[in-house]
Amino acid sequence: MGTHRWEPDGAVPETLRTGARVLNEAETVWIAMLQGWAAQQSARNLSATTIETRRATVVRFRQFADCYPWQWTAGTVDEFFLELRALKGAARSTVLGYQNALRMFLEYLTDPAYGWGELCWDRFSDHPAQGFHEWNTARHAQDAVGSPGKRPYTRDELEDLFDCADERVLRIRRAGSKGWIPAFRTATIMKVAYAWGLRRNEVRNLDLVDFAANPQAPQFGEAGIVYIRHGKAMRGSPPKRRSVLTVPEFGWAVDCVQQWIDEVRPLYAPPGSTQLWPSERGTAVIAADSLSRGFNEVKRAAGLEEALDFHSLRRSYVTHMVELGYDAFFIQQQVGHAHASTTSIYTGHSPDYRARVVNDAIERTIQAALNRKDTEN
């Protein structure tokens, strides 16, 4: 009885391992490498979107290098990222994502378990080598990578942003255009994202059933808790779920949601639909690009900095929760961060808050001194 040789998902296919010659040999091996890497990632339970995004990065690098992976060098790596940063102005997070994808692809090719190094040596007298090292790649030293311009909104900026969104609805409605409904939807989504500290994809995918009563806070009616079903996924895991409690300081947003559900949403939501933010056609949730366009129109009309993006609403929520005195662990649970360090990165205290903290400390010091003096007397 023969023994069966176990091969990991993504190993060199039998058709290539036999040494049989094929047409366009280099291209055939390259395609087999991409297919094998996809199989290896699928075996690790990574999502199809993640796999395809990484594949696209590798294909882009292959086109730039104009050669195959067993011919790539560290010099090619430097040239690629120099062009990406200096000529095309790619963000740090984009560069880091590209480098991680390419590094993982070469780790896969150079792992002896998959057999690509041996195959390339037999067929091309060359082999893939890891071209990404600490000295030529960006380091991911913190949980959030972004431009220094990415910050929370000040309270005045938030007021300007929301006022501008509301005025846009009134202006379009007075003009007699049905475009006021999408404008109302955008304005309400922005307020919900801020009031519950949600990411764009989290708020975009909310359903009517995701709002529920909180027995400990009956004043918020059926919006005391928001259940998030499309939280940011960890590697190889499905979207992370969590529940976010409505807090008194943001209770004003409950009325905004209720007005949308009772008065505006029924104007184009199809019967039986449960999506909180249906698209204009009523057949699906609002597209991410559509939401971003609507938000950017409001932001530009408000005259706010370009670096202040939709995610800054979430940064503002974290910052204002800290300023309001909420427990750090509670805030961490509300926004769904795995680590407290991530929550701290989101926090950018306002000058007024810092001044208030200093003044409170001075007053406590003075009061303590007066108390000691009274005791001595």
Rank of each mutant, 00 (worst) to 15 (best):
P13T: 10
E14S: 15
L16M: 08
L16P: 00
R17H: 02
N24T: 04
E27H: 12
E27W: 08
V29L: 08
W37E: 00
W37N: 02
W37I: 01
S47V: 03
S47K: 03
T49L: 11
E52A: 04
T57A: 12
T57M: 13
F61S: 02
F64S: 13
D66M: 11
Q71H: 12
V77H: 06
D78V: 09
L82V: 06
A90Q: 10
N100K: 10
E107N: 14
P112D: 11
L119H: 08
C120G: 01
C120H: 01
A129L: 13
T137E: 09
L161N: 02
L161P: 00
C164M: 15
C164S: 14
L170C: 03
I172N: 06
I189C: 03
I189Q: 02
M190N: 06
K191M: 11
A193M: 12
A195I: 07
G197W: 04
N201L: 07
L208F: 03
V209N: 08
Q216A: 15
Q216M: 09
Q219M: 15
E222I: 02
E222T: 07
V226P: 12
V226E: 00
I228T: 06
R235E: 15
T246G: 05
V254W: 08
D255I: 07
C256S: 06
I261L: 03
I261S: 00
V264N: 04
Y268Q: 04
P271H: 05
S273C: 15
R281H: 09
E297R: 14
A302K: 02
L304C: 07
E305H: 10
E306S: 14
L308T: 00
R315Y: 05
V318A: 13
T319Y: 11
D327K: 05
F330M: 15
I331K: 04
I331E: 04
A340N: 04
S341R: 07
Y346K: 01
G348N: 14
V358D: 14
Q367G: 04
N377C: 04
